[in-house]
Simulated assay, not measured.
Amino acid sequence: MRRRRFLAGLGASGLAASAGCLGFLETEPANREPPLPENRPDEPYYPTHYEGMEMAGTSANGRYRAMLSYTFPHRFWTVTGEETERVDFESSEDAHLMVSVWDDEAGVALPATSPRIEYTNPDGETGRVNPWQMLSQRMGVHYGDNVELGPDGDYEATVQVSPGGTRRTDDVQVPDGPLTFSFSFPFSQGRLNDLEFTDIAGDREGTPGAVDPMGMDAVSAGQTPAAESFPLEVRGTQTAAGAEFVAATADERGTLATGSDETYVAVSVRSAHSRFPLAAATLSLDAAGDTHQLVPTLDPELGYHYAAAVPGLGDGDALTVRQDAASQLARHEGYETAFFGVDPMEF
């Protein structure tokens, strides 16, 4: 099962943009992927290899930024509930294109923006693509898909993103409507084939761990603060299946907790090695004798987290966090076995 692009008059050619996938496949002309490691662990692991990416450019719209890039096509996994389904790239697909969007003033990536990319190739033919929301070890949360590229030459692309339905705190602005970003860039197969390729050789491949994220604004905007510097009172930190859970509280948090009889409970769920938020999960909280739904929330200090305003919570009261469904983000190699089967945690 996969969502496919609609191509208007492109035939075998197309261009797509996609958020942040830095793939795990080789640079040979046939684009044959190496075999997956045997006995992959139920947590993040070192993939077979990783490669560089080519920047198509960045674009600004007020306080918002978008980055468009591409790399080699590669396999990835979609998630439905607790099940994954592998998606292999098709023989006609020769690139993986990506887009990341963030609020530059607040310094946070915008989740659930459902981008749509429309493009024109050098022959004047047009098409569009709705990429997947994905998680990769190099790029974190982004949108991407494998595509068939058009001929070498100059491309024009427009990325439109919706405001997204994720709840915001006071300091993260909700756009009034869709945001549009424009890009002009050259593409050639030779430029793609020249991208850097790094083979993870030896005994590290397939072992628990993760490669380092890329040092880019689009990536750092998507990372959550470290537990030791989390800006609320941390009640505890636990790790399971490669996911780190940081539970924290505050007596008052903007308009989300009144400060009278409510406590703001924030649970930051992130990849243990790189602190990428595990978006699109379903979490609930048992606290103060009641069960509360933890709502995905975006905050400039806390980043993407799950939260509830809990009345009557005492300083010594326990918090029980339940992962009712794992993150539904599509996964790049190295993440497809992780973050599932988490038991309830008490803080």
Rank of each mutant, 00 (worst) to 15 (best):
Q293W: 00
V269N: 02
V265D: 02
D154Q: 09
T166G: 07
L283Y: 03
D145P: 00
A17S: 12
D286A: 06
T258D: 15
L195C: 10
G334C: 11
A338P: 14
S268I: 09
T27H: 09
P37I: 14
E346N: 08
Y45T: 08
D88L: 12
L283G: 01
L285W: 01
V246E: 00
Y50Q: 06
M53N: 03
V265M: 11
V161L: 06
A247L: 10
D145R: 09
D317Y: 00
Q160C: 12
Q133W: 01
A201D: 12
L329C: 04
L298D: 01
E228R: 12
E233I: 03
E43C: 05
F6Q: 10
S184Y: 01
G14E: 10
R168T: 03
D103N: 12
D104T: 04
T207Q: 03
E156R: 09
G52W: 09
S274M: 10
S188N: 08
P41W: 07
P277C: 08
P186W: 05
A243M: 15
F230D: 07
I117W: 05
T48G: 13
V265N: 03
M98K: 06
R128K: 05
E125H: 09
A112W: 12
V321S: 08
D88H: 12
G334Y: 10
G164M: 11
F347D: 00
G124E: 11
L294W: 00
R331V: 12
A279I: 06
P344R: 10
A241V: 07
G81F: 09
E38G: 05
N130Y: 07
P175R: 04
E43H: 03
M1R: 10
A250K: 01
Q238K: 08
T297P: 06
E28R: 07
A281G: 15
L135P: 01
A243Y: 00
P300T: 11
S100M: 04
H49W: 01
M98G: 14
R191K: 14
S184E: 13
T320V: 14
R322E: 02
D152K: 07
S92V: 14
T249P: 06
G107W: 01
P175C: 07
Q137R: 00
P111I: 04
E228C: 05
D152Q: 08
G190E: 15
D286Y: 02
S69A: 15
A248E: 07
G206M: 13
A19W: 04
E38D: 15
E83N: 13
P344Q: 08
T84I: 15
A218F: 09
V87N: 02
D199H: 05
L283I: 08
S91F: 03
T337L: 06
Y46C: 02
V267L: 05
S268H: 03
Q323A: 10
D94F: 07
S114E: 15
S182A: 14
G254M: 14
E85W: 01
Y70L: 11
A30D: 15
A318S: 15
E118L: 09
R275T: 02
E233L: 07
S220H: 11
E301P: 02
N61Y: 05
V219H: 04
V172D: 10
